[in-house]
């Protein structure tokens, strides 16, 4: 018998407590307007989790996607050592990559665990939707199962949820771009930043959205949101604008035919690459006049 209900009627942390105390095994599926998620438990421990923020999609959660998204390895690197990596069994893929020296066992465990926590904490913020617990269901055999005890999630969950709700209020969209605040601020002197905060800072650029920063830095959206919120609060950065129209247009490209898209891509590629076949960019997109302005200014310092 499946346990079913509405998210607005229960506290998810309470349900997790039930899973823990009754040492349940099974799959909890969540469907809300904010996305879909699946959480698998074995004897009261979380063993696998996946999420999609697209309500029309099924959650995936495969190792290939997680690794690429974490930034730890690039898709091209995986494809080079394991051409069918994207559709492979997670365990097989993991072994190949460890043997090829691309990642360590610990890297994989860390990335998988982080994703599981991200999924749970994200779903805790869903205030409406449907849930269904299918007893005795086990994760798909091709996925990795990494046990995590629920104690911390249950303890931290409510506080975490409140913080997330608050952060979402202050920073509703991850589509905004950021820049460093203009004009020196006295309070900079006493800012003490953690390595994760530096990670975020190093990606701040009016061309990167907060969502991009989360992706590049390998931090969870929650962490990135929290750090960006702090940086905005202490005045180190400010909102530069919305993510560029270009990206929005690229996102819409699926409505065009495949052929049209291919020619568009080709045209785009041939323009800058025509002259210089170099693989690495020689320099970022900075005008010569900017370099001249820098020179003039520093000479006069």
């Amino acid at each position: 018998m499946a346990l079913k209900g509405k998210l607005q009627d229960i506290r998810l942390t309470q349900f997790l407590n039930l899973v823990k105390l009754a040492r349940k095994t099974g799959c909890l599926s969540l469907r809300s307007s904010q996305g879909n998620a699946i959480l698998f438990f074995r004897e009261g421990k979380l063993v696998h989790a996946a999420l999609t923020k697209n309500a029309n999609e099924e959650p995936g959660g495969d190792l290939y996607t997680l690794l690429v998204r974490s930034g730890k390895v690039q898709a091209s690197q995986i494809d080079a050592v394991f051409p069918n990596g994207a559709s492979a069994d997670d365990k097989q893929l993991g072994m190949r990559l460890i043997n090829a020296g691309l990642v360590s066992r610990n890297d994989i465990l860390r990335i998988v665990r982080k994703n599981m926590l991200d999924v749970v904490y994200e779903t805790l913020t869903w205030e409406e939707g449907a849930f269904e617990f299918q007893p005795n269901a086990t994760p798909p055999p091709e996925r990795l199962a990494v046990p995590i005890t629920l104690d911390n999630i249950i303890l931290e969950g409510d506080r975490h949820r409140e913080e997330m709700v608050e952060l979402k209020e202050d920073l509703p969209s991850l589509d905004i771009t950021l820049r460093f605040a203009e004009g020196p601020r006295a309070n900079l002197v006493n800012i003490n930043l953690s390595p994760d905060e530096w990670r975020v800072i190093s990606f701040i650029n009016p061309r990167h959205s907060v969502a991009d920063i989360a992706r590049y830095s390998g931090l969870s959206e929650f962490e990135t949101r929290r750090i960006v919120h702090k940086l905005l609060k202490n005045g180190l950065v400010e909102v530069a604008g919305k993510a560029t129209v270009q990206e929005a247009a690229a996102g819409n490209s699926h409505s065009r035919s495949r052929a049209a898209r291919t020619t568009a891509t080709k045209r785009q590629q041939s323009r800058p690459a025509g002259r210089r076949p170099a693989m690495k960019p020689k320099r970022p997109d900075v005008e010569k006049s900017v370099v001249n302005r820098l020179i003039k200014f520093i000479r006069g310092l």
Partner: peptide, 12 residues
């Protein structure tokens, strides 16, 4: 530990 961060403002 992480990195240093300095700034030179050329103009607006």
């Amino acid at each position: 530990v992480a990195m240093d961060f300095g700034r030179i403002t050329v103009d607006d």
